[in-house]
Nucleic acid binder design. Structure first.
Lengths: 118, 118
DNA sequence: CGGTTTTATAACCAGTTGGTTTTCTACCGT
DNA sequence: ACGGTAGAAAACCAACTGGTTATAAAACCG
């Protein structure tokens, strides 16, 4: 998993407009003007965002006369999730420790193991 | 899940130095100089990266005399994974469709249902 | 052909980012 | 009290971002 791929992916995801565009593309292909409609932004503004998404591999574009329909590409999203998944065990481990602590408190009260002379 | 939280999280993750710092912190707490050691970068450079990570909630810092040990905080990583997980069904669906298509080909050949006058 | 629609490109601007060097503060050990 | 160590803060810089307007290119429609 090349670092600059993750760089581009995370950077592309760090903008709410671009995340909204991706969310819209989950519903299916869309043209640039369709994608631009919900936003109070100029068309070239949207085109710039689309170029960022395209260079990150998050969308691909076809041809339909004048239109350039965009479609979602999920491969980089999976790479990003794979990277994040490396941390899943870490936070689940925290839960396990918390669970164990709570269980111990419930049973014996705090520091039951360390107590010696009651 | 507030959008500016995801903004800050993804933006923080979009830098290889910062991702390497997080990876190091999986092994446990570390001081600034410990974190800086592997990089060909000035100490203030690392401090700047740490501030970005801290403002994104990805690390927290304690006190140990002059040292400010950093520890990993996973909550924003979970939020990021939650957001990405919304796309998991999409790419799995693609696999399902591919699976279905391959199964159909194997059984009846393509377009078996549409055939009428052989 | 001429006009309209769809998209891309260019040039520009303000603000942010990633890095530097220099300096400052706070704490430790002797 | 004093010198050394850990880290932060400030000032600066080049490069990149996110937005704009204006213009151009490509393909349709009549």
């Amino acid at each position: 998993m090349a670092t600059d791929v993750l760089d581009a992916t995370f950077a592309a995801l760090a903008d709410p407009t671009r995340r909204a565009i991706l969310a819209r593309l989950k519903e299916g292909e869309a043209t640039v003007t369709e994608l631009a409609a919900p936003f109070a932004m100029s068309q070239p503004g949207i085109s710039k965002h689309l170029r960022v998404l395209e260079r990150a591999g998050l969308i691909s574009r076809g041809r339909d006369a004048q239109r350039r329909p965009c479609r979602l590409e999920t491969a980089p999203l999976r790479d990003a999730m794979d990277w994040l998944a490396n941390y899943r065990s870490y936070w689940e481990e925290s839960y396990q420790r918390l669970d164990a602590l709570l269980g111990e408190l419930d049973h014996d009260g705090p520091d039951a193991a360390e107590r010696e002379t009651p």
